[in-house]
Amino acid sequence: MFDKFIQFEIVTPKRVVLKDEILQITLPTRAGEITVLPNHIPLVSSLVPGVVHVKKKNGEDEVISISGGFLEVLKDKVVILADTAERAEEIDLARAEEGRRRAEELKQQARAGERVNFAEINAALERELARTKAVKRWRKLKNLE
């Protein structure tokens, strides 16, 4: 049915998160969410924290949360340079929720008090949000709930 694949790779400074042949990928860029299909025109874009949704060659879905990074689309090749990335199956929902709650608390405190590293707290919050979102979407896909 599909004879076109994309060589896909998502790496963080710490590891290669996923490297596979895929059919399509949906990701959150600065200008909005986009989907890349085979034969996409070369594109470079910066990514915002959010959920990356990948359809693999074998028909399986993969959901990955990222906290910003870059996207490079070449002919038949997609590379994501993520700051951090986690596959949804690796994320523990309870802990992700907990992390989000903590980040929100921190934000409240920061708002009340001094505004030292507000940007960092905000980034952490966005990252945690992306993680929870990724797990939820993953569970929905797998009909876990």
């Binding site: 860029t29 070369p42 594109l43 470079v44 874009s45 910066s46 070449l74």
Partner: peptide, 13 residues
């Protein structure tokens, strides 16, 4: 080979 599209713009990327 490559003619890139930049989003939002080359400078920003």
């Amino acid at each position: 080979k490559y003619e890139y599209i930049f989003e939002p713009s080359p400078e920003e990327v």
